[in-house]
């Protein structure tokens, strides 16, 4: 029997979803629905856009205007939707490979424009849909099917990347910290400009198995034991932070939003007539 939240925001006839047992994506998707609910958004005025990959299947289960696009291009499609109709609340669901490899250029430019799109990156450190190839967020040294001897690439810190590129809201939580994730997505939705929330997921099927990270429960425990909130981190030493990763809000600095800046041009020209 689905919960009232699921009943209200999901296309229950499409469930169960395709994700593997133990995958973090389901929890993250529920957190997003919860944040939408708490934000009091009108379902008819919300559009969820995704690219290609495991995470990008999420919109298909969600009862909004939903658009499943091509690999990496979700933000470019979303930009068209938002600019053409700024009244629509546009949310992008994407993955680490989708957003930072093939879609990396679209990501930095969406950040730079500060266009009113809320982006949630489901980061499972691997290409899951294609069977476990290393992604731009696979930690150095870890294995993937295309890095059988260990990955020699340096990995991206998605939140730092987005902050530097001009996103006006960036934050990170994990599938384990689902309540925090809901709060952060809610805050991101409240920002008029471009927001990015990195949701650390877990892929026991590929990333976990390839790298001996244990089963799904152990991977969740790893999230619990290694995530440090930014507030707490400021009081910790480098030594104490070794091997840990930060969660919480990194940037919340509103600036003029792209489509409202464009509207100013339209209004100015209309007055000049």
């Amino acid at each position: 029997m689905p919960s009232t939240l699921v009943e209200k925001y999901f296309r229950t006839e499409k469930l169960p979803q395709i994700w593997c047992p133990g995958c973090g994506h389901g929890i993250i998707t529920r957190s997003i629905a919860s944040a939408i609910d708490q934000s009091g958004l009108d379902k008819d005025k919300v559009c969820i856009v995704s690219g290609i990959g495991c995470s990008s299947r999420a919109p298909g289960y969600m009862d909004f205007n939903t658009l499943h696009t091509t690999h990496g291009r979700a933000l470019a499609f979303a930009t068209g939707i938002k600019l053409a109709n700024p009244e629509i609340k546009v949310i992008v669901i994407t993955g680490d490979g989708d957003a930072t490899a093939i879609g990396g250029n679209h990501l930095i430019h969406a950040c730079r424009r500060n266009i009113g799109i809320t982006t949630i990156v489901y980061n499972n450190n691997i290409y899951g849909m294609t069977g476990g190839q290393y992604s731009p967020t696979t930690p150095k040294g870890d294995k993937g099917t295309t890095a059988p001897f260990g990955n020699i690439d340096k990995s991206f810190d998605i939140c730092s990347l987005a902050s530097a590129a001009g996103a006006t809201y960036t934050a990170r939580a994990t599938a384990y910290h689902a309540n925090l994730l809901t709060t952060l997505v809610k805050n991101a939705l409240a920002n008029d400009g471009f927001s990015l929330v990195e949701a650390v997921s877990a892929c026991p099927t590929y990333y976990g198995r390839k790298n001996k990270k244990g089963n799904a429960v152990e991977m969740m425990e790893w999230q619990k034991n290694n995530a440090v909130n930014v507030a707490a981190a400021s009081k910790m030493t480098q030594e104490q932070l070794e091997g840990k990763f930060l969660i919480g809000e990194f940037k919340n600095k509103p600036e003029p939003e792209y489509t409202s800046e464009y509207q100013k041009i339209i209004d100015k020209l209309a007055k000049g007539r």
Partner: peptide, 21 residues
Amino acid sequence: RFIQMEDEIAGMAATIGAALT
């Protein structure tokens, strides 16, 4: 509305997104 996108691919993508509205 007009937008200069970051590349040709994005130009096509944004066009499609807008059409859906």
